[in-house]
Amino acid sequence: MEQQVNKQVNVRYIAELGMFIGIILLMELTGLNKIPLGPGLNMTFSMVPIAVGAMLLGPLAGTILGAVYGLTSLYNAITGAGGMTHAFFQLNPFMTVLLCVGTRTLVGLAVGWLFRLLRKLDRHRIWCYFAGGLSAPLLNTLLFMGFIVLFFYRTEAVQPSSRHWQTR
C-alpha cells in the first residue's frame, strides 16, 4: 500500500516536472518569453517557470529546470541566436557551456534551497513565495554577469564595449 502511494507521488512529481519543462521549452522556442526593449536588449520571463518549479517541487526540480533552460541557452549560443553567448562560444566552448548551463542550474538549485529556508522563517507562508520569485532573476543576473566578468572580461567580445564606455 505504502509502495503504491510512493509510486503515485513519484508519477505526480514527474508529470508536474514534465509540465514545467514543457512550459520552459514552449516559451523559449516560440519567443514568448521575450519582450524587445531596444536594439539588442530583451526583457525575458524565462526565470519565472524555473522559480515556480523550484518553489513547488523542490531544489532537485529547480536544478533540472535550470539545466533545461541552460541547454536552450546553449543551443542559442551554438546556432548564433544568442548574440553575446555565440561570441563567447567561438572563444571558449567549454567555459560557454559552464556559463549557459552551469550558472542556470545553480540558480534553480539556489532558488529551491532559498525557498525552503525562507518557508521556515515565514510563519504565514506568504512573503516567502514572493521572495523566492524575486530571487530567481536576481541570482540569474548575479551569477551570469559575474561569470562573464570573471572569465570573459578580458576577451575581445567584451572589451570593445567596455573601452567604448570608458572613453565616454
Binding site: 526583457m43 525575458t44 520571463f45 526565470m47 519565472v48 522559480a51 515556480v52 518553489m55 513547488l56 513565495y129 514572493f130 521572495a131 523566492g132 520569485g133 524575486l134 530571487s135 530567481a136 532573476p137 536576481l138 543576473t141
Partner: peptide
C-alpha cells in the same frame, strides 16, 4: 525582470 519575478513568479507559485 525583478518585478516580474516578484509578482508573477511569487503569485503563480
Amino acid at each position: 525582470e525583478a518585478a516580474t519575478g516578484l509578482v508573477i513568479g511569487g503569485g503563480v507559485a
